[in-house]
């Protein structure tokens, strides 16, 4: 793989990341969101995979495969299992922010992402680091999803988007944190998602709904 091909591939990955996030904000259908999430996960895993191939680093390739497996496969699968049991509808019906505003906010967030990551680019300008702003924007979009969605499942999705973004930043900035930490962190993530899914199930059983506004009995 040549350097230009590598740069093109990384740019592609970054575009996929960003695009998938934006579409997740746009769409309200859970099924679609989960599919986009899987695409995004593959894109995140694509970074170390591409880098590994480019740098001829086997360890990076393995990590990339693992990430693709986890974020592109397992996690969306866990979420979709939950979706199958969802009876209250498979759409986010009433988000706190309507779609138009949400897209507008997303645009703003992308800009913020660029602004924030500006110093990192100044420090070391490589093909990887040039993609960091996009990854950072994904993080912020994830945060926005987390805050603005009211259904339990979409909070899980927002959380995953954010985490994808962080992982992408990690790979882009430093070709990934040490493997043991990457593995531990991924394991943690998986467990958290599992817990969220179990809790969503219980919530569903208790409330017949997963509207999080109903969760405001604990207050002072």
């Amino acid at each position: 793989m040549s350097a230009s091909e590598f740069t093109t591939l990384l740019d592609l990955v970054a575009s996929v990341l960003l695009l998938s996030s934006v579409i997740i904000v746009w769409r309200r259908d859970y099924g679609a969101m989960i599919k986009l999430l899987a695409v995004q996960g593959v894109a995140v895993g694509g970074i170390p995979l591409v880098s590994g191939i480019y740098l001829k680093d086997l360890q990076l390739v393995v990590v990339g495969m693992m990430v693709i497996l986890l974020r592109g496969g397992v996690l969306p699968w866990v979420l979709s299992r939950r979706l199958a049991d969802e009876t209250a509808g498979s759409r986010e019906t009433k988000p706190l922010v309507n779609t138009t505003s949400a897209l507008f906010v997303t645009a703003l967030l992308v800009m913020v992402g660029y602004l924030v990551t500006h110093p990192m680019l100044r420090r070391a300008s490589t093909p990887e680091t040039r993609a960091i702003p996009a990854a950072f924007a994904v993080i912020l979009i994830g945060v926005f999803l987390l805050v603005s969605r009211k259904r339990a499942l979409s909070q899980g999705i927002g959380f995953l988007v954010m985490d994808n973004g962080i992982d992408a930043v990690a790979f882009l900035a430093t070709l990934g944190v040490p493997a043991i930490i990457e593995i531990g962190a991924s394991f943690d993530l998986l467990l958290v998602l599992a817990i969220l899914v179990i809790l969503t199930g219980r919530m569903h059983a208790k409330f017949k709904d997963t509207d999080l506004d109903a969760l405001s009995e604990l207050r002072d």
Binding site: V143, F159, V192, I195, L199, R202, M203, L215, L218
Partner: peptide, 21 residues
């Protein structure tokens, strides 16, 4: 496994994970 403890758990996990992330 009460309604309230479920609520508390959800908040706990989501808010903490958000922060920790």
């Amino acid at each position: 496994r009460t309604r309230l403890s479920l609520e508390a758990t959800w908040k706990y996990v989501v808010i903490c994970s958000f922060g920790i992330t």
